[in-house]
């Protein structure tokens, strides 16, 4: 009943028959059927929960000075596992993209779905969902295990206290954002080793390199480098010179979006 297009007319870019859901299902099946996915999630869980238990059971609250006692943050200290966990999910994000290039699978993928940004968006949706679910589950488990391991004499945190629930939820969201930064980096760099070096460099090495610098550089880094940002996001006792946790969280989301946008551009611009 619509005005019929003339037979000679051809739309510049007709809508494809496949939808985003179909492409996301492809990416879910790919992610699910590679063993390394589940190994990395399992090690991530062990790191998050195990390190929370180790850290809080050795807190030694009684030996702390008065100043250290005042600064003691029983919520934040549960998430020491993020130091290792972020590297695992970052690597998982990289591998989701780079193993396609190293194996040649990328050509089969782009033959099935020639719209490359759609492929990347589907990967981001599936990877983001899996790492968010794993991250939140492990963050709450690490929090519970950490509080249970803390000596009775030390102050304990509960989810009902102001800022605690926010800190735990953000500790669980941080890994998903790191995974997406890894995915975007993988699409940009294409080679596993190079992309993992880039991600580890930003997450792990850059904060170490800044250590010898003045306190003002250190204070600034917690507002713009991912892992120091995670520290600020998971702190319940406000840190000096840190932006609000929500602002830092928004900035980290912008990093992930920028990495994915750069990856989508690189996938579209380059030959495969």
């Amino acid at each position: 009943m619509t005005t019929a297009t003339t037979s000679g007319h051809r739309a510049a870019s007709p809508a494809p028959g496949y939808g985003f859901g179909a492409v996301a299902l492809m990416e879910w099946r790919k992610l699910r059927t590679v063993r390394s996915t589940w190994w990395m999630v399992a090690i991530f869980a062990v790191a998050m929960i195990g390190l929370a238990i180790v850290a809080l059971s050795h807190e030694g609250y009684r030996q702390l000075s008065a100043a250290d006692r005042a600064a003691f943050d029983p919520t934040h200290d549960c998430f020491i596992g993020l130091v290792l966990g972020q590297l695992l999910v970052g690597a998982l994000g990289v591998l989701v993209m780079t193993t396609e290039f190293s194996s040649g699978m990328i050509r089969a993928t782009f033959a099935a779905v020639p719209r490359r940004p759609v492929v990347l968006a589907a990967k981001a949706a599936v990877l983001g969902a899996v790492t968010l679910a794993a991250g939140e589950a492990c963050a709450f488990a690490a929090f519970a295990a950490g509080q249970a391991s803390l000596a009775a004499s030390a102050p304990h945190a509960t989810l009902g206290q102001p800022g605690v629930l926010r800190a735990v939820v953000m500790a669980g969201a941080y890994p998903a954002l790191v995974a997406l930064i890894g995915l975007g980096t993988g699409a940009l760099v294409r080679h596993t080793a190079g992309a993992i070096c880039a991600v580890v460099g930003v997450l792990f090495v850059l904060p170490l390199l800044l250590a010898p610098f003045s306190a003002s550089v250190q204070d600034a880094s917690q507002n713009f480098l991912p892992h120091p940002m995670a520290n600020a996001m998971t702190a319940v006792k406000p840190l000096a010179h840190a932006l609000s946790p929500w602002l830092i969280f928004a900035l980290l989301c912008a990093y992930a979006a920028a990495a994915l946008a750069a990856g989508a551009w690189a996938l579209t611009a380059r030959d495969t």
Binding site: G17, Y18, A22, L25, M26, R29, T33, A108, A112, V113
Partner: peptide, 11 residues
């Protein structure tokens, strides 16, 4: 699993 993933994308 390889074929099932590709198949999913095109219904």
């Amino acid at each position: 699993a390889h074929l099932m993933s590709l198949a999913a994308s095109n219904g």
